[in-house]
């Protein structure tokens, strides 16, 4: 499990490209500097897409990404900090 202190969690399970990135953008806009957003997705493409988005977008950084299992489904979990 991640050690990050999560401010808000965004559930984008069941949604596919481009919605995980688009909804993450909206959720990050509502955060204050230093706060951490946890994004939970079932889209395996979100591992590359959210990392790429965070790397090329000013004001956010990807702290951590992990894969977990929940009742047979693989979840892709991302921790994004607003700078």
């Amino acid at each position: 499990m991640s050690q990050h202190e999560v401010t808000q969690t965004l559930d984008v399970k069941g949604l596919s490209c481009p919605m995980p990135v688009v909804k993450t953008r909206g959720a990050v806009d509502d955060l204050s500097a230093g706060e951490v957003l946890k994004v939970v997705s079932t889209d395996s493409g979100s591992m590359s897409d959210l990392k790429g988005w965070a790397d090329s977008t000013d004001g956010v950084s990807m702290l951590d990404q992990e894969e977990t299992e929940e009742s047979g489904d693989t979840l892709f979990v991302h921790y994004i900090q607003k700078e």
Partner: peptide, 11 residues
């Protein structure tokens, strides 16, 4: 539409 909305998410 996918590229446009994603690019908007990039700012």
């Amino acid at each position: 539409l996918i590229l446009a909305s994603t690019a908007a998410a990039f700012g």
